[in-house]
């Protein structure tokens, strides 16, 4: 439990902005010296407003962006030093669920094709035959609360919550240890959000997954995560256990965010 699965060490990312007419290049510093360590089996929440660098950090973890400075280690291996083949193998163990389930599923692929695609990509590791892949897809679908009868259907036949379940099944297909969840419930209604959050809790308990959960919804982060980091304009402002951050926030930024959170104070009822 105490060994880190993901270490982000002093990562900075600078984008060159448009060059001014004469001379100096303006720079956008998307990440400034960010260090985070995620332990195996925990749910780590990353909270920040739009433009704070959440997405840049996520992309860096997937090595879709190369940090300008600093290192990102997955189980002690520096991502930047891996060969392309090793990096591809590693990607089987780090998967992502995107924010918008309406945009992240190919409408022309059947659910079977969607869920088995990662198994094809990582065929060298998983080595599953065609029938094994279909069986595994059926198994994954029942794991996320759908069924084998959905294999031949297409994304448009599903509701938002069901689509997000398909995205989760796809993310689990290559047998990952770390799941990056990029606002997986913000496009969903509260009723459906609750189901997806519960599914995530259940999957973590059953499969021993580690979650890196990115969100701007503090209530959701408080519900799901055990540790939280707040990021503001590319800098890490505060990090701690969920209780510490929510009960005794140290930074002004954390206090401001928690104060701005709209909450329903329930006294009785709400027991349907």
């Amino acid at each position: 439990m105490s060994e880190p699965i993901l270490q982000i060490e002093n990562v900075s990312k600078t984008y060159a902005a448009r060059r001014a007419l004469f001379g100096r290049t303006a720079e956008v510093r998307a990440l400034k010296d960010v260090s985070i360590s995620v332990q195996k089996g925990e749910s780590f929440g990353l909270v920040g407003e739009s433009g704070s660098g959440k997405t840049t950090l996520t992309r860096s973890i997937l090595h879709l962006e190369t940090p300008s400075a600093g290192r990102i280690l997955f189980e002690g291996q520096d991502l930047a030093r891996l060969s392309p083949a090793d990096l591809r193998r590693l990607r089987a163990r780090v998967q992502i669920v995107f924010q918008d389930p309406y945009a992240s599923l190919n409408p022309r692929m059947s659910v079977r094709d969607i869920v088995t695609e990662p198994m094809l990509v990582h065929h060298d590791i998983l080595g599953l035959s065609r029938t094994q892949r279909t069986d595994r897809a059926a198994e994954l679908l029942s794991l996320v609360g759908l069924g084998p009868q959905h294999l031949t259907r297409y994304p448009h036949e599903f509701s938002g919550g069901q689509r997000q379940r398909i995205c989760i099944a796809r993310a689990l297909a290559s047998g990952p240890e770390l799941l990056l969840l990029d606002e997986p419930t913000s496009a969903l209604d509260v009723s459906v959000q609750a189901q997806v959050l519960n599914l995530l809790c259940e999957l973590q308990d059953r499969l021993g997954l580690t979650y890196f959960f990115i969100s701007h919804d503090l209530a959701v982060v408080r519900y799901l995560c055990s540790r939280v980091a707040l990021i503001y304009r590319g800098e890490l402002v505060e990090e701690g256990t969920t209780d510490e951050i929510f009960d005794t926030p140290k930074s002004d930024y954390a206090r401001m965010l928690i104060g701005a959170m709209p909450e329903v104070k329930v006294r009785r009822g709400a027991t349907a």
Binding site: A194, A219, G269, A270
Partner: peptide
């Protein structure tokens, strides 16, 4: 009631 029960609270 169902809507309210679905909101994560403290």
């Amino acid at each position: 009631r169902a809507l309210m029960a679905a909101i994560p609270t403290k």
